[in-house]
Design a protein around this nucleic acid. Structure first.
Lengths: 282, 282
DNA sequence: CATGAGCGATACCGTGGGGGTATCGGTGCC
DNA sequence: GGCACCGATACCCCCACGGTATCGCTCATG
């Protein structure tokens, strides 16, 4: 099976529409139809159920969608990491670390400092990405190692080391009645009509319905909090980035957040090993 | 990057010889040379160092070999599992379990029996393979779940659950001086000139040099033990398969062997989940 | 019930790239 | 110095992939 066939199938399986999938792939619809039916013939199984009005996945199609995404990620990872290893000779950074923007920033700084002090360290490129994107970067090879946060991020499929565990705090506008409390419970925060929870865009870029404001970035969110439009619950370490007008109150029954360093289990990079070593020593 | 290119590169990187690699791939040498240099041009990095007398891997080439093998396994896994999911509708077994031939046979029997008794169980195909082959079957999708033995098998990259831990015993021919001992240490077993350790074929099918007999199978090995030509150290549970003429003596300082059930971390198969569930309940 | 819109499949054609053979060019060995 | 070995190059062929045009089926609509 060629990656081209896999890319085509994944596109159709995601769109459930040959025309749109073809458009996304930048080809015409007929060759796409042919490629899929040829793939089905070669596999000897039906992947899609076609009616003139709709396309649905068969069981085999659902399996191929899952496994195919993982396979395409693995191919992309091979390409990314090989290219990076080649450019490393030209002085480019040889290792990429992915971290959530605005999270664990102190820990991250200490980690990079500690690693840079090691004798055989190499330049590290840090990619700050949106929440939940680190795992994707790690899977398709755009990154070699990542800082994740359980239970928010899915660590399955990676090797990990725990670095720190912390509680969570609610960030509230100064002056709000709740902001004077010594601590809070999650039940205090749901159904606060004047501070509805914010809504983040989904993977497809659209927003779910709800009363809360639509947000795209941490900065924007904190500004909305200080304007008294919403509230947010964040790990304790994020306190250091709060400016005036924002009050942090511990939420005693919020799940503990564990910061972990994660890397692909088959990684043999000495730089990744060095970073992990420096991290566990912190 | 197409899987064809990856297959070609992996062949050359493993053979370090364009002619042999081409032969292995069933194509002529010139198109292979072109494909590799085209791949290097597209990646923008050198993968191989060529001299008229030898071919060696660059750093980038070594990375691509590693990551590329994983990627090819992932593609093969997608293909195998999709095909199996399709054929499951036709009454074929929907899930394949890989286990080492002759190991943990009682536990395996109990597991299969317990799972078959569950309400939503499906037929399970059991593949008995040689030592260390289970992980490969799991990686390229020929199997969905496997029974492995730490520390012999490498479990990295899989999710696992421990099932049992046991000590190891030395299997000796009846009548040998050591066979009357209540227990042994590893140091008693190295350098027993009349019972040199057996030699298994490597991944390439060849044998390392040494005094011990060359063996291919467990049966053959045990027969050689009873003939007084070699000795072997195996997990305690293998005792049940020893026939007359063979004596098992505990080796007190041999590493403990843990039987684990392993599956790909991203597996969403209900059958795999059911097998794992049945296994941990044993 | 007829018509048209939407969508995937089919028919047919052109071209680019992957594969083949023949040969070259460079290197080390007898 | 000639030869053997090995990867690269030159040249050719063919097919598989992609494009355009069109068909066939189904359902919504008046």
């Amino acid at each position: 099976m060629e990656t081209r066939e896999l890319r085509y199938f994944v596109a159709v399986a995601e769109e459930l529409h040959f025309g749109r999938a073809a458009q996304r792939l930048g080809i015409a619809q007929p060759p796409l139809s042919r490629a899929i039916s040829q793939l089905e013939r070669r596999l000897g199984v039906a992947l899609l159920e076609r009616t003139p009005r709709s396309v649905t996945l068969t069981d085999a199609g659902a399996v191929l969608l899952h496994e195919g995404r993982a396979a395409l990620d693995a191919v992309a990872a091979a390409e990314h990491r090989a290219r990076r290893a080649g450019l490393a000779a030209a002085g480019e950074p040889a290792v990429v670390l992915a971290a959530k923007a605005g999270a664990s920033s102190e820990l991250l700084a200490k980690l990079l400092h500690a690693y840079a002090a090691e004798p055989d360290s190499v330049p590290v490129e840090v990619v700050l990405c949106g929440p939940g994107e680190q795992a994707g970067l790690l899977r398709d090879g755009r990154a070699d190692v990542a800082v994740l946060h359980r239970p928010f991020d899915d660590t399955s499929g990676f090797d990990t080391e725990d670095l720190a565990t912390e509680g969570q705090v609610a960030v509230l506008p100064a002056g709000h009645p709740l902001s004077t409390r010594a601590d809070l419970r999650l039940s205090d925060l749901t159904d606060v009509p004047e501070l509805p929870l914010p809504r983040w865009p989904g993977p497809d870029g659209t927003y779910a319905d709800g009363p809360g404001p639509e947000v795209q970035s941490q900065t924007q969110l904190l500004q909305l909090v200080s304007l008294g439009r919403t509230l947010v619950v964040v790990p304790d370490s994020a306190r250091s980035q709060l400016h005036d007008g924002l009050i942090a109150v511990p939420v005693v029954d919020a799940p503990a957040v564990t910061t972990v360093i994660a890397w692909p289990p088959h990684s043999r990079s000495r730089a990744v090993a060095g970073l992990v070593n420096a991290a566990v020593r912190l």
